[in-house]
């Protein structure tokens, strides 16, 4: 592991310990009250969810058409993070929506697209786990199709209805709320980078052990 890993992990841990205190100190939003504070975890995890999905798609495409095994490991690691941050997003979202919209779930563009992206990532992991030999390419193909799907979900549900707050809400936040949001955002980003790094490292080590094992048999 690189030298910066342990210090960065400690900083990340401290930030997550401090974040509830920071969030609690920020003023209450006038209409939503306490429930609005979910937003400080929801939005960063949703961005990480999206980032992980994009990394997975790009790495899969590069693996499929270039073939470097490193790309495949990146894609696998990113797919796991997609599932992880996807769960956080999909759990915190409805908790907020229950209060804001009066419903746990609506078939809005972002909700539908997120759920679909999350399902594709779960399918990716299932293929990797239970597909047997050759499942790496299969999974890469799946990631590619999953990525191509997003615009269609977007168009189809947009035509339908949409109520999810737009990204334009972020610059309009009061300063203290914005500070708390960016603090959480950095904490999540750090966590994301650390987990991705660790997961890729683990796969590289595993590949190295495999190749050592094979060379010993010869």
């Amino acid at each position: 592991m690189p030298k910066w890993f342990t210090p960065a992990a400690i900083v990340c841990g401290l930030m997550f310990v401090a974040s509830p205190v920071f969030i609690a100190s920020v003023r209450y939003e006038s209409t939503m009250g306490l429930v609005q504070k979910i937003f400080y975890y929801h939005m960063p995890s949703a961005v990480m969810f999206l980032l992980a999905a994009v990394i997975c798609g790009v790495a899969s495409a590069r693996y499929l058409f270039g073939g470097a095994p490193h790309q495949d490991r990146v894609a696998w690691a990113a797919a796991e993070l997609t599932v992880l941050f996807g769960i956080i997003t999909l759990v915190t979202g409805p908790l907020w929506a229950r209060k804001a919209w009066g419903q746990w779930w609506v078939w809005d563009v972002r909700l539908t697209a997120s759920l679909m992206g999350w399902l594709v990532a779960v399918a990716y992991l299932l293929v990797r786990r239970y597909g047997g030999p050759g499942s790496d390419k299969l999974a890469a193909g799946l990631a590619l199709f999953g990525a191509a799907n997003v615009p269609f979900v977007y168009i189809s549900v947009n035509y339908w209805r949409t109520i999810h707050p737009a990204t334009s809400v972020v610059p309009t936040l009061p300063v203290d709320m914005g500070m708390a949001l960016w603090f959480c955002f950095v904490a999540f980003l750090l966590l994301f980078v650390l987990l991705l790094k660790m997961r890729i490292y683990l796969e590289e080590e595993r590949a190295r052990v495999d190749s050592l094992y094979l060379s010993l048999e010869d």
Partner: peptide, 13 residues
């Protein structure tokens, strides 16, 4: 498992 998440837009449309 692979097919249904990918064909979500087909089903919606």
């Amino acid at each position: 498992v692979l097919l249904y998440p990918i064909t979500v837009p087909v089903m919606i449309a």
